[in-house]
Nucleic acid binder design. Structure first.
Length: 283
DNA sequence: TACCAGGTCTGAC
DNA sequence: GTCAGACATGGT
């Protein structure tokens, strides 16, 4: 095995658990005190040393993971802005999720992952994606962990649709397969040059992608933080904690974005993480 | 056993 | 433009 490198980052604004489990990424697992995170054909190992969060990866993938974990961004600015809103639930959520970072994930992997996410739960999404990687990805190894890469779009496009049903995608298998035959890196480069609203308009043209999934892709795949995905959990927050009455999720999303502007996506993650952890604890 | 999960599509009005 | 019902499937 080749040389590895360690990236050090102060842990106050980088909590491994909340960053990975807040529902933005599905390919990771914990082994002892170490977390293994997978992106495309790459792998990083995360753990703590004193006050630092450590990212260990291959020497030539340092830049990739530096960007992937969004290390150039000042998260204290985001956190402070959340506190300054002076909204009780947001203050509580920001304090709980202070260490959440929004990852810069691969665009194609993000699109496919969130097509699976509709009307689905996170453990199931993780399982389906893992099985797809095992069946169509390429075998790799990092720090003693064997893993499979996320398959290339062409590989997905040329597979048999029955394969996607067999891994539990259900009716989403059709969408998954169709989209693989409609996108390529050139198209995604075009998408990347669009303003957020136009980007979402384009994404929604793909079958299986509606407003909520488009918001997730814009936020997690294109780092458009002026996005605010509204799912069942956020709708609960909106009704129970913000006293909201609107039923149309797109309008709820617009309302939040008009208030939180370019911080929308970060605040949404604070709130989502808070609400899900609250319910999990109560059970 | 029903209900739910990071919703979307379709057809009827 | 809005709305109800259908949609696969495993977890709780």
């Amino acid at each position: 095995m080749g040389k590895t490198v360690k990236i050090y980052y102060k842990s106050e604004f980088f909590d491994i658990y909340s960053t990975l489990t807040c529902g933005q990424v599905f390919r990771f697992y914990k082994k002892g005190e170490r977390w293994f995170v997978f992106s495309k054909d790459k792998c990083a190992c995360l753990y703590y040393e004193g006050d630092n969060t450590i990212i260990e990866c291959k020497l030539n993938e340092r830049e990739y993971f530096y960007n992937y974990f969004d290390l150039a961004r000042n998260y204290s600015l985001i956190y402070n802005s959340a506190i300054e809103q002076n909204i009780d639930i947001l203050t509580i959520s920001a304090n709980l999720g202070k260490g959440i970072r929004i990852l810069n994930q691969d665009r194609e992997e993000t699109i496919f992952s969130f097509i699976i996410s509709q009307n689905n739960n996170i453990p199931r999404i993780k399982g389906s994606i893992e099985r797809i990687c095992t069946l169509l990805g390429e075998e790799n190894e990092f720090m003693g962990e064997k893993y499979y890469s996320f398959p290339k779009t062409e590989k997905i496009a040329s597979a048999n649709i029955e394969l996607f049903k067999s891994v539990g995608l259900g009716y989403r298998a059709e969408y998954f397969f169709q989209v693989a035959n409609q996108i390529d890196s050139e198209l995604l480069e075009l998408y990347n040059n669009l303003l957020t609203l136009d980007l979402k308009k384009e994404l929604i043209k793909l079958k299986g992608i509606g407003p909520k999934v488009a918001d997730c892709i814009a936020l997690f795949g294109f780092h458009r933080s002026d996005s605010f995905p509204v799912d069942t959990w956020i709708e609960k927050v909106y009704r129970e904690n913000f006293g909201g009455k609107e039923r149309d999720r797109s309008k709820i999303s617009e309302e939040f974005v008009s208030n939180f502007k370019e911080f929308s996506g970060y605040f949404q993650q604070y709130l989502f993480h808070y609400k899900r952890n609250l319910i999990k604890k109560a059970k």
